[in-house]
């Protein structure tokens, strides 16, 4: 998709026919180019990443956790048991208020919640744009040992955000393999990072929002 847009931008003023040829050429070339692009994000078992953005009464939360933390394995789900474990994990991950317990006084409700499992090497924008490429990717490393990650995005709306004085992480109770969450918080007061571990599963937000 991005290659096409580039061509369209630089091809400004070129005749339609030449543009069409250029488009065809990039379309043909793009899987090859994408194949050349290799990149791996950091992946540490036991450590998940949590991003919290607060604006007014709305809170956006993004969670990235290694498959090992959530379900205990990262291989492709082969057995019925594996698949059931994944489905159950997704179901749990889609209830953010049970993972991250907020003070009742804040009266937060979930407006959006979505969780899914992704391959480490998969890049969101590539994988969804290019069908052929996606197929190739799966074929390419279906047999290799790979890392998987759960990603979840939530949007909460809180009636009285002033009452948000802290977060309790039931997350660690629900997922016994998770050891730590690296938290990045952004609010009116600026950006801050924290580390919350299994031994002290709470974050004090007094004066942070």
């Amino acid at each position: 998709m991005n290659y096409l847009r580039e061509t369209a931008v630089t091809g400004k003023g070129i005749s339609m026919k030449r543009l069409a040829i250029a488009l065809l050429a990039t379309a043909a070339v793009s899987p090859a180019l994408a194949q050349e692009h290799r990149e791996l994000g950091a992946h540490e078992h036991g450590v998940g990443r949590l991003e919290i953005a607060v604006e007014g009464s709305r809170i956006a939360i993004g969670l990235e956790a290694p498959g090992a933390d959530i379900v205990g394995f990262e291989h492709a789900a082969s057995s019925a048991g594996d698949r059931a474990a994944l489905d159950q994990a997704i179901a749990v991950l889609e209830k953010p208020l049970e993972l991250f317990v907020l003070p009742g006084g804040a009266q937060c409700v979930v407006t959006e919640a979505a969780a899914r499992l992704v391959d480490e090497e998969e890049h969101e924008h590539e994988a969804h744009d290019d069908k052929a490429h996606e197929g190739e990717k799966h074929a390419d490393h279906g047999h290799e040992a790979q890392h998987t990650e759960f990603r979840a995005n939530y949007v909460l709306t809180c009636a009285s955000p002033a009452a948000l004085t802290g977060i309790e992480f039931a997350y660690f109770k629900l997922f016994p393999n998770a050891r730590e969450l690296e938290i990045r918080l952004i609010s009116e007061k600026g950006a801050k990072s924290f580390e919350v571990g299994r031994d002290a599963p709470a974050l004090d937000l007094k004066g942070q929002l």
Partner: peptide
């Protein structure tokens, strides 16, 4: 503000060029 992390991820994963987006405070 809710889109900061989303945009940061997009920039950090920008496939055409290795870029880095950081939050100044962090």
């Amino acid at each position: 503000r809710l889109q900061v992390f989303q945009l940061q991820r997009w920039i950090n994963q920008y496939p055409e060029e290795p870029l880095l987006a950081v939050l100044p405070g962090l």
